[in-house]
Nucleic acid binder design. Sequence first.
RNA 1: GUCUCCAUAGCUCAAUUGGAUAGAGCGUCGGCCUCCGAAGCCGAAGGUUGCAGGUUCGAUUCCUGUUGGAGACGCCA
Length: 672
Amino acid sequence: MNLLKVISRRFETALTALGVDPSPYLDMIRPSQDPKFGDYQANFAMPLGKKLGKNPREVAAEALTHFQFDDLLEPPEIAGPGFINLKVKESALAELVQKEAGDERLGIEPTDVRKKYVLDYSAPNVAKPLHVGHIRSTMIGNSLSRILRFLGHDVVSDNHLGDWGTQFGMIIYGYRNFLDAAAYEKEPVAELARLYRLTRQLVDYYKAKEEVGSLLQARDAAQLALDAQKSKCAALKQQDEADKTKESKEALKKANKERERLSKELSSAQERYDSVQKKIAEVEQNEDVLKLAQGRETIGVDVLAETSKLHHGDEANLALWRQFIPQCMTEVDKIYNDLNVHFDLTLGESFYNDKLGPLVERLKNAGIARETEGAVGIFLDGHDAPMLIQKSDGAYLYATTDLATLEYRRDAFKPDAILYVVDFRQSLHFEQLFEAAKYLGMGDVQLVHVKFGTVLGEDGKPFKTRAGKSVGLRSLLDEACSRAYEVVKNNDMNRAAEDRFSEEEMRETSKRVGIGALVYADLSQNRESDYVFSYDKMLAMNGNTATYMQYAYARVRSIFTKGGVDVDDLRRSFADGRNKLTFTKPEERALAFELLQFHAALANVERDFRPNFLTAYLYELANKYSAFFEKCSVLKAEDEKTKASRLLLCDLTARTIEKGLDLLGIQTVERM
RNA sequence: GUCUCCAUAGCUCAAUUGGAUAGAGCGUCGGCCUCCGAAGCCGAAGGUUGCAGGUUCGAUUCCUGUUGGAGACGCCA
């Protein structure tokens, strides 16, 4: 039940009766930010008063004469410049909450504007291990998929794997040249990862050797420029001290700014130089690797050749590729399993391989794409550079696959909307892609780049460990579980011996708690902002965390266990009128009202594709429950009626938390 | 050089899209377990929302300028 919607509809009637078009004003009815202003507030009287040239308070009063409220609300109050404060009647509130408690779907009716969504998320490059950066796309997409489904939409989730790029050229090259057959026999995934890293290292090595000279020159040039600017600044400073005019001051300021810019340029040139030096040193200081490097000056083009052969249907390379893919996927799938992530489809880039050539031909023939400097591109309105869809060597690009994917999805699923849960740095690419989609006649499909920010290290740069390697998702998950294990075990020690967890229960519990914390930490962030990675923050277990909600849930469950409550009978007793929800303390009412806001929270998520509206709601709910828990004894309530009433609030709270967490991909535990 | 995004408490982040006194967590300080689970609760301190203008009944939110940070910008994905 979305109470706000009901109230909105009634105001729609009231405003229409006033003779105004209600549509722009209905959004101005919203939950109050402060309980002293009631439960909801309507803010339309001020702009409306302005428009009608009347006193806003009068407008409010007039609207209220047409507003039917007495079954739902206390008499509305007009406050301040013309705010209308609304408070839900206790009897109505009790009735609504009872209804939700008796409903499988917690009172949330499936939407009446059912849409078909294609949801594109996760999309890792399967040749490489997943790292911390992959968690955002994966978890945001996964929770959106669950939420949209629950709201009644049709969702096709598709994992657009990177299974066809240069990385496979690397692995194939590595396999042909560096394979340790015994290791491959024993642990194929680890060996493939090693081959990838080694080949990559050697490619980088020769590239670095090629670049090192010019990078050194660039650094020296930057140094010279900076030195020159420094003396210029010194001269200008002397000048200024002598003249002390406005002009001399300006000139000095400008020169100093330029000096700062040059200084930054120098450090970035230095950084680039150091980075290639390091790559060279890493190879040359390791005898074994150096030996492998010798005589492979052409490894860069050789790797590309392997990739190209694969793309052009070379049987030997295709056979290797078919052998590698499932091996690469075992580890990825294991992580998906741990994270409670599912896909309806997994159509990687390779799936579109044979569609690329014909697509480019069609676009050329239709005059949408044309040749430019040997390559083929689509020239788009509002963009200087064309979107290239074929390289001058004939190879296809990212954009080509994306266009082919777009067409395939249009034809296969006929979606109303396609959502791409992808890093914000690809904004421009999607702008171009969506623009190009119009040329393909897809103007009626809603295309959304659900963008998210970068995971940063403590230095404010995209996250890397000190060794320069990104934190693997596997080790992050393991760390999450082991930290949770400590806490769970510590708590368990305080229990009576006969109540303690078995080792297996302990492991399962700490897995749910640890991974829940990790997932929640990501989803509770506004997806558009970058965030700084920290183990302590990602794996925290108090405050606004999944653990807090899981804890609230476990406390409810423990009341039911301890009280020997038959939940089914409890629910029935309200349905058949034996019991009735009543509020004797303010904490009960506050909790009941919060329970009613679940639908609105999900609607907010749907509007902006932002799961953090749901986490914020769950936190608020668990918070209200904690206050209720402190102030209202359940099992030792004053009388049986109050006890039953409170038990129902507990039951609905637990179910709402469980459902809410489930929609985020997080599991609950009965005890923790 | 062009374009995009960001700037909120000591730190990390919110703020239901323009609403009333800007909220949490962590950290700091002080209270609360003979009482359904203290992974909790209650309270205190902490803010010129980067800066300067503008729009209006009302601005963290919209506009202009400015400073600082991040990112993207035809043959990578």
